[in-house]
Each structure stands twice: as structure tokens, then as C-alpha cells.
């Protein structure tokens, strides 16, 4: 049976349908989860999609983290469930404390919307298991606050524990360590700024997002 992926919708989310399309295109089921419901149902994996949850007021993710759905998602993640936060979803995951660090305004203060090349640094995660170390993936970014920031101590911890999954080949936003995506200690929670769901069809210019979402679907099926 194919797994069911829940895609959370906050007021201001805008990539949820792209995520649903991409997941269905890869043969899994996808359902939307309204943020005000603490009931996330029998989902096998969760995607927190991109957008501007609650208008990004105060800070991106600062208000979204208190949504009833987030409590259930934290619980789901702590039980080992696969959770991926894409772009705004990554920001939400840092705010809620499932991932370390924070996403700051881009160096140069430009909203960046373009395809970038990513390098796979670790294949040991729910999002990268079907890639190879050193693979170059061409996937779009679309953010103003994607500049990954953390303490030196956290950066060392991420490096020493192989928790940096994806890096930028040409750092577009000032992220420490060229970080584009990281995972938690148990490797079942991943956050990344690039949008794999927008690189899952030839018509979109790239299918490099497929191995990432396929890895995720497989982990949700396990």
C-alpha cells in the first residue's frame, strides 16, 4: 500500500498544492491538514510546505509554531515519524525546536527565486537516502529568509554528526557552511530551503527533486 503524506496548510501557505501534486505524481497519497486541527489522522509522513504562514509576521514561523497541528507534528516526529519542512516549513521547524539554528534574511537583502545547484553531503536521512554523496541536484529556491545561522557549536555538531544533508554549490544567501538542508539527530526530521516539489516534472525544467521526495515517501512507507 502506498503511504499517505499529510501536507499542513497555514493561512499564507502557498506551496501545498505543488507538494500534493509532486507526492501523487510519485505514486503516494497526499492529504491537506488544516493547521487549526490537532488531529493529523493516520498519515505516514508530514510535509510542512513553503509560503508565508501567518504572513511571516514577527518572524517566519514564529506564529505557525503554536498551531494545534504543530503540537501533533512534534509528537509524530518524536515517535520517529518522517517530517520534511520545505522553505517556510524549514523556518517553522527551527522555530518549534525540531531543528537547530534559524533562518536569517539573505545576505544582500534580495528575495531569491531561481534554480540553484545543490550538492548531496549525506545520504543518511529520510530525504536523501535515494541519492549518492556528491550528486548535484538542480532545484529552485524561492525565499527572502534562507540564510542559515547557528552558533559555532551547533555548526560543529551538525558537521561532526553528518547532519548537513545538502549544501549550495554557489552560496546564494549567506548561509553558514553553505547549508541548504539539515536533519535532526534521529535523521527523521529534515528542513531545507530549496523546493524539491517544484523540480518533479520535465515541464518545470528539472526532475532532480524526485529522488528526494522518493526517499521521503519510502521512509514514510517503512
Amino acid at each position: 500500500m502506498s503511504p499517505t503524506i499529510g501536507v499542513v496548510v497555514f493561512p499564507g501557505s502557498n506551496c501545498e498544492q505543488d507538494a500534493v501534486e509532486a507526492i501523487r505524481g510519485l505514486g503516494a497519497e497526499a492529504v491537506l491538514l488544516w493547521h487549526e486541527s490537532a488531529e493529523i489522522g493516520e498519515v505516514d509522513g508530514v510535509i510542512i510546505p513553503g509560503g508565508f504562514a501567518h504572513g511571516d509576521y514577527l518572524r517566519p514561523g514564529a506564529i505557525a509554531r503554536f498551531s494545534p497541528a504543530m503540537e501533533s507534528i512534534v509528537d509524530f516526529a518524536e515517535r520517529g515519524g518522517s517530517v520534511v519542512g520545505i522553505c517556510n516549513g524549514f523556518q517553522v521547524l527551527t522555530e518549534v525546536g525540531l531543528l537547530p539554528g534559524a533562518l536569517q534574511k539573505n545576505i544582500g537583502l534580495k528575495f531569491l527565486c531561481k534554480p540553484v545547484n545543490l550538492q548531496v553531503e549525506s545520504t543518511n536521512s529520510i530525504l536523501t537516502s535515494q541519492t549518492k554523496p556528491g550528486d548535484i541536484l538542480n532545484i529552485p529556491i524561492n525565499h527572502f529568509e534562507g540564510n542559515y545561522t547557528c552558533s559555532e557549536e551547533t555548526l560543529n555538531e551538525l558537521r561532526n554528526n553528518d547532519r548537513i544533508l545538502l549544501t549550495y554549490k554557489n552560496n546564494p544567501n549567506g548561509s553558514m557552511g553553505d547549508i541548504a538542508g539539515i536533519c535532526n539527530e534521529s535523521r527523521n526530521v529534515v528542513g531545507l530551503m530549496p523546493h524539491p516539489e517544484r523540480a518533479c516534472h520535465h515541464l518545470l525544467g528539472s526532475t532532480d527533486g524526485e529522488p528526494l521526495l522518493q526517499s521521503f515517501i519510502e521512509s514514510a512507507n517503512a
Binding site: R59, T94, P100, A102, T149, S151
Partner: peptide
């Protein structure tokens, strides 16, 4: 808890 992100 809310108004600041203590990381930054």
C-alpha cells in the same frame, strides 16, 4: 517563548 528567537 515568542517575541524573540533566542538563536539570533
Amino acid at each position: 517563548r515568542f517575541l524573540t528567537n533566542p538563536v539570533i
